[in-house]
Measured scan of single mutants.
Amino acid sequence: HNLTITQGKLFFHYNPKLCLSEIHKMEEVSGTKGRQERNDIALKTNGDQASCENELLKFSYIRTSFDKILLRWEPYWPPDFRDLLGFMLFYKEAPYQNVTEFDGQDACGSNSWTVVDIDPPLRSNDPKSQNHPGWLMRGLKPWTQYAIFVKTLVTFSDERRTYGAKSDIIYVQTDATNPSVPLDPISVSNSSSQIILKWKPPSDPNGNITHYLVFWERQAEDSELFELDYCLKGLKLPSRTWSPPFESEDSQKHNQSEYEDSAGECCSCPKTDSQILKELEESSFRKTFEDYLHNVVFVPRKTSSGTGAEDPRPSRKRRSLGDVGNVTVAVPTVAAFPNTSSTSVPTSPEEHRPFEKVVNKESLVISGLRHFTGYRIELQACNQDTPEERCSVAAYVSARTMPEAKADDIVGPVTHEIFENNVVHLMWQEPKEPNGLIVLYEVSYRRYGDEELHLCVSRKHFALERGCRLRGLSPGNYSVRIRATSLAGNGSWTEPTYFYVTDYLDVPSNIA
């Protein structure tokens, strides 16, 4: 807008934040220059609390790290170098490059900038070799853009010569660093050979998330399962459950009422301010606690030095998902009996873990797994792929695949051998790939016309006998059925096997 004052003059007093240069501009645009008398524009009460600059400061050096910015700028000295009290560095987070010096300023003089007072450097006698002032900004957020400017702080001049310097606002972004852990990993099994893994992005990506790394490792069953005799009275049979499938998407929606109208769909109840505040506090606490764990609990591995020492970490090797089922080394339970199943799973520490690289999504279907087997899954978020990966501390989750139908069934015939004193040795093959492992066998036998009897055969007993022995049988026709019990439950009964026990007292003698 054009402003013209045809008559009258300007009068400025007691404006401590208004620089004289701005008042002189007002004289020019209003056409009143030359009308004012000496005392109409006070030299001592206008701009006496402001830094009124008329020179431009330029930054000469900028260096960044993930949490620091090192700045240096060209030296500046007023005509009387004693008038320079120091520099004021202003900075704040700036997602967009549209910041002005006066953003967030209120009537009390406060604003949204963080201000650092910096002492002037030592003055050199040689004007050509003056030290460049600077400042190291610490405690910054990774991968965050900051708006920065600097200006001088000078003393009051009796001659009211307006001098000083100020830089333009520059924008500097800190470097990326390792992201925080992925949030809320959930693993479920939808079949006997697959596990579905879902997660949420890290709360602090500290860069642009480029991919996720998912490692999985087959877990050995508890050692007590191999040692305890679950045929003993009072000892509860062990059981394991597989990871249940995901709930429906509708039930997972946030901010939804727990109660549904019987007449149909209901609208979600909005969260109160107290609920939102509580969630923010919980989120802040979780982030602080995660940072504490990362800094205190997890110790970084030592990389190899120039002395030739090897990095103890196993090298990563990509495998196809079809090879995942046989990740671990199978060892027989008892070496003397080769027909026992290889369900003991000690994992070799030198073995390469299978892994998958996930790009542009937060889910993965891990296939080719062994049925009813526990897996430990390790999830890392990465925001750099080359020249070397920059990934987060791992988040861990466990899951067990679903049982395989008929995996616990005894394959092959049940054979028998009759000894003296009416002892019958029953023999059968253990299931080759049971659900988890076989903890015991149930032997059901009966003599024709009598009630059915049951015998429990422990895992250890089966390994020693290759089956079991029935003792003290009365003469007669017998039928026997056997079924295995694994961590997933009972298998199917075998087809009945028949044998006849004679009275050993009636056996004919070869003595003449």
Rank of each mutant, 00 (worst) to 15 (best):
D204Q: 09
N208L: 08
V214K: 00
F215A: 13
F215I: 04
W216G: 03
E217P: 13
E217Q: 15
A220T: 15
E221A: 01
D222H: 03
D222V: 09
L225Q: 11
F226S: 05
F226E: 13
F226T: 13
E227R: 08
L228P: 13
L228R: 05
C231I: 01
K233Y: 12
G234T: 07
K236M: 06
P238V: 03
S239M: 05
S239V: 14
S239T: 10
R240K: 08
R240T: 09
R240L: 07
T241G: 11
T241E: 06
T241D: 05
W242E: 04
S243C: 06
P244K: 07
P245C: 04
F246V: 06
E247I: 02
E247G: 09
S248H: 02
D250P: 13
Q252D: 09
H254P: 05
S262V: 03
A263I: 10
G264P: 08
E265F: 11
C267T: 04
C267Y: 07
S268T: 13
C269V: 10
K271C: 02
T272Q: 09
T272F: 05
D273I: 14
D273T: 02
D273A: 10
S274F: 02
I276M: 11
L277I: 12
E279R: 14
E281T: 03
E282P: 14
S283K: 02
S284T: 12
F285T: 04
F285D: 13
R286G: 04
K287F: 06
T288V: 09
F289G: 03
L293P: 02
F298E: 08
P300H: 09
P300Q: 05
P300F: 12
P300R: 03
R301I: 09
T303P: 11
T303G: 07
S304R: 03
S305R: 06
S305D: 15
G306F: 09
G306R: 08
G308P: 04
A309V: 10
D311F: 09
P314I: 00
S315I: 10
K317S: 12
K317M: 07
R318C: 13
R318E: 13
L321D: 03
L321T: 12
D323N: 07
V324D: 05
V331N: 09
V331T: 15
P332F: 04
V334M: 12
A335M: 13
A336V: 14
A336R: 13
T340P: 10
E350I: 03
R353Y: 05
F355R: 06
V358R: 10
N360T: 08
K361R: 03
S367E: 14
S367R: 07
R370E: 09
R370V: 03
H371L: 06
F372K: 02
F372N: 08
Y375N: 01
R376Q: 06
E378V: 12
L379N: 01
Q384E: 14
Q384I: 04
P387Q: 13
E388F: 07
C391Y: 10
S392A: 01
A394C: 13
A395V: 10
Y396S: 07
Y396P: 10
V397W: 11
A399E: 05
A399M: 13
A399W: 04
A399P: 05
R400G: 07
T401S: 12
D408N: 14
I410V: 15
I410T: 03
V411S: 08
G412T: 04
G412N: 15
H416A: 08
E417T: 14
N421K: 13
N421P: 11
N421Y: 13
N421I: 15
N422F: 02
V424G: 02
H425Q: 10
M427Q: 05
P431A: 04
P431H: 01
P434L: 01
P434D: 01
N435S: 03
Y441P: 00
Y441R: 01
E442H: 04
R447L: 10
R447C: 08
G449N: 06
E452D: 12
E452G: 14
H454A: 07
H454W: 04
L455S: 10
L455E: 15
L455M: 08
C456W: 00
V457W: 05
S458M: 14
H461P: 04
H461Y: 07
L464V: 11
L464R: 08
E465A: 07
R466P: 07
C468D: 00
R469P: 03
L470K: 00
L470V: 12
S474L: 09
P475G: 06
P475R: 08
S479M: 05
S479E: 12
R481D: 00
I482Y: 01
R483E: 00
R483P: 00
R483A: 09
S486M: 00
L487C: 10
G491F: 02
W493R: 03
P496G: 00
Y500R: 12
Y500W: 11
Y500T: 07
V501F: 12
Y504I: 09
L505D: 04
P508V: 13
N510S: 06
